[in-house]
């Protein structure tokens, strides 16, 4: 049975020009979706079907884009969660963080909470789907990967390490169908009161180069980070593992 894959897309913002564009991570989510499901991929956007950027996504070879029509002030999460509940998806792909709007990176987490699905964050690739399990490669710093097995259905946020999006072709983008459905009308009450201002560059910590030789610098740039205090718990019982995580969270003052 083919698996139902949904990619969520948003309107991106070019870092230099500030102009609307297909968001980098979202378009990688579409690319991965196309790899998994071909043109059966369902690409979903909450917003206006008149948005020209949707044509840029469609130019990647999508016959249609599902648009959950809603006002800019409405909460996209409500529309998307409702849609996902009704669609019986197996895999939902999103970017890690949107390039416009709140850009909090919370969308995949809140969705996973509402749907009760697992979330895999910063995915570089989905290698294989077998039965009701998927083998997923997570992107770690310095090009490292971790392979995990996840039960379907799940949500994956796509890292910049995933395969880059293919070129968008103007003609197919222009001709793609915008499949409009009613989205939510629930106003994002928190966001309404916000005002947007350009971000200020934060001061950067001066980097003190300790390396004396080129070989040292090379090592510093390529060596694995030496965590030191980390602990791998493989053989302990689930109870002990959970306790260790709990202790760490208290130690780090994440929970009190």
């Amino acid at each position: 049975m083919p698996h139902k894959v949904i990619s969520l897309i948003s309107v991106g913002r070019h870092p230099q020009s500030g102009r609307s564009r297909r968001a980098d991570q979202d378009s990688r989510a579409v690319e991965l979706g196309l790899k998994l499901a071909g043109t059966d991929l369902d690409v979903v956007h909450a917003g206006s079907s008149q948005e020209p950027v949707l044509r840029q996504y469609a130019g990647m070879g999508l016959p249609k884009v599902t648009v959950l029509e809603q006002d800019e002030s409405a909460d996209a999460l409500v529309s998307i969660a409702d849609y996902l509940k009704s669609e019986k998806a197996d895999i939902v792909l999103t970017g890690v963080r949107a390039e416009s709007g709140e850009s909090s990176g919370m969308t995949p987490y809140i969705l996973s909470e509402q749907l009760g699905w697992p979330i895999v964050a910063r995915v570089a690739d989905i290698v294989e789907i077998k039965g009701d399990e998927a083998q997923v490669l997570l992107a770690l710093p310095r090009g490292q990967r971790r392979q995990v097995t996840v039960k379907l259905p799940f949500i994956a946020s796509i890292d910049n390490a995933a395969e880059a999006a293919r070129q968008s072709a103007f003609g197919p983008g222009l001709r793609a169908k915008m499949d409009s459905q009613n989205g939510s009308t629930v106003e994002d009450s928190v966001r309404v009161d916000w005002s947007e201002a350009p971000a200020k560059a934060r001061p950067k910590r001066l980097k003190i180069v300790k390396a004396k030789t080129a070989a040292d610098r090379f090592k510093a740039a390529t060596a694995k980070p030496q965590g030191g205090s980390g602990k791998v718990m493989k053989n302990e019982s689930a109870q002990e593992q959970a306790q260790a995580i709990f202790d760490l969270l208290i130690e780090e003052k994440v929970i009190r």
Partner: peptide, 13 residues
């Protein structure tokens, strides 16, 4: 190739 297929090679895209 560019406008229908999206296949401009190398740095084209």
């Amino acid at each position: 190739l560019t406008m229908e297929k999206g296949e401009t090679p190398n740095k084209g895209s």
